[in-house]
């Protein structure tokens, strides 16, 4: 049960919202939960539980997993790939970059530029990568290649 739905049920149990309002809230969350993190604005009469000081401030729940779904039909038969990676793993993985010694940065930069990758590792900070991962919540990629009979979906949930 995700966090949004749990909060709705807690509000219903404590009497802050009616059953009709709870039902509308849950229905509003349903189509958003597949592709993106939930965003809810606290505009329910009598309820200020969502947004704290400002009722109209959207409360954003961060996605927990990065999903990659691949379906393809090859000559021998269908192939499916279903990968779910926790976002925490991505965050922990980018911290590996901070372990690279400073002396190695110059060598890596030179090697990358030699291979045509214009990337300067010393300018990439872990906080920049953290911000990038935080914005992955909005990522949604749908590829439907009819000729190759392949579908690719990448999204966060």
């Amino acid at each position: 049960m995700n966090e949004n739905r749990r909060q709705i049920l807690e509000m219903l149990a404590s009497g802050k919202i009616t059953t009709d309002e709870a039902e509308r809230l849950i229905a509003a969350l349903e189509p958003e939960q597949v592709a993106t993190a939930g965003v809810f604005t606290g505009n329910i009469a009598g309820s200020n539980h969502w947004s704290g000081d400002d009722k109209d401030t959207p409360v954003r729940t961060h996605a927990k997993y990065l999903r990659v779904l691949v379906e393809s039909t090859e000559k021998n038969g269908p192939t499916t790939v279903n990968v779910r990676v926790p976002m925490q793993l991505l965050r922990a993985g980018v911290r590996l970059a901070s372990l690279i010694p400073a002396q190695a940065h110059d060598q890596l930069d030179a090697t990358l530029s030699k291979h045509g990758v214009p990337l300067t590792l010393s300018q990439i900070k872990p906080e920049n990568l953290e911000e990038l991962i935080d914005h992955l919540d909005d990522l949604s990629v749908d590829v439907d290649a009819k000729e190759e009979k392949a579908k690719v979906r990448v999204f966060c949930e």
């Binding site: 927990k64 090859e74 038969g77 499916t80």
Partner: peptide
């Protein structure tokens, strides 16, 4: 610690 929740499934015809 972040490995919890990792789920990988690859299915081909055989």
């Amino acid at each position: 610690c972040a490995l919890r929740g990792l789920n990988i499934r690859v299915t081909t015809h055989d």
